[in-house]
Design a protein around this nucleic acid. Sequence first.
DNA 1: AAGTCTAGTAAACTATCGTTCACTTTGTCA
DNA 2: TGACAAAGTGAACGATAGTTTACTAGACTT
Lengths: 188, 188
Amino acid sequence: MKLDHLDTVKRFYKFHKRLPSYSEMLKLFDFSSKNAIYRIIQKWIEEGLIKKDARKLAPTSKFFSLPFLGIIKAGFPILAEEDKNYLTLDEYLIEDPHSSFILRVSGDSLINVGIFDGDLVIIERSQQALSGDIVLAQIDREWTLKILRKDNQKKSYLASANPKYPPFFPRQELQIHGIVKAVVRKFN
Amino acid sequence: MKLDHLDTVKRFYKFHKRLPSYSEMLKLFDFSSKNAIYRIIQKWIEEGLIKKDARKLAPTSKFFSLPFLGIIKAGFPILAEEDKNYLTLDEYLIEDPHSSFILRVSGDSLINVGIFDGDLVIIERSQQALSGDIVLAQIDREWTLKILRKDNQKKSYLASANPKYPPFFPRQELQIHGIVKAVVRKFN
DNA sequence: AAGTCTAGTAAACTATCGTTCACTTTGTCA
DNA sequence: TGACAAAGTGAACGATAGTTTACTAGACTT
């Protein structure tokens, strides 16, 4: 597969975590006039891959992102949605980076909600957890990841998402430290 | 929660997709000498949040990433791993951005491998799929997302990960278009 | 064959970049 | 209280940034 100029810039970005300057692109593309670069950049700007503010280059999210092809209905053909749809996972999954962190899950107590042993969960420190939320909690001083439930007396307790484990009622106290906002699993 | 200088820069980055220049930081931090900025940047470089190459600033992955706190074993306390561990989801999940794309899954045929209705899957166009891989395939011209199996005669067929669906043997042809590399699910 | 696009070269320009040096203010700790 | 370090000011520096204009060679029309 041959690399065009955009691929070269993406490679540069991946390695350096920044866009190359015009003079750097001169070398990368083996050109000898900055004007050639200027024109190429203009084209990318029109295509929405790059933008400029205050005369400085910056990538757009289209630059980073993967094509989002559409929905696959098991048993049905692909419904390819709008042609130009792109997605950056970090942006999609993490709404408030400031108050979020990642944990690896060990154990099978949440398999029924599709959280498996080894999965990563993104947790947001949060004030208010609702019944049904999957929460990082401390129940009687012991940390755990479970589903928050409130019974009809509004008393909170924790439930597993695996029928083989019973619900946990706090003896003394139940502290909610965060809400699971997303799960992520990598195969292999 | 009060914003320190680093937070301000992160906000700027999130919005502009680039780091602010020294003069821009002057305004952001309300300083009046570039030297003050210079010193702050030096500190961030020592902390590994920012780096410089060819006199140009660039963030490191530590800059973007969420703290990876460790493993939570259901029923056991948090095992907080090494203090400084960071993770960027895009980098973690997508190995080859060039040949990857995203699809939203509709249907329950893969629930047993933890892929639910509405989840996003990251698919890599790939030459070689192994038995057991979850693949995007075309079986007798119909697109689907299933588990690839090979029987003892090395004949390929597709299986669901839901016992209520039978395996699919191709009448004429079976084309593998990609392998599912990761799943991602957002709550709410 | 003439005319028009496209993609590149070459050179000059200003603004801003990140750096450096010398000095001043503020805070901390003995 | 005095000393020292940390944090900020202010000004000057050369290097590089992105932009602009003018020109050229090849490819595509018609």
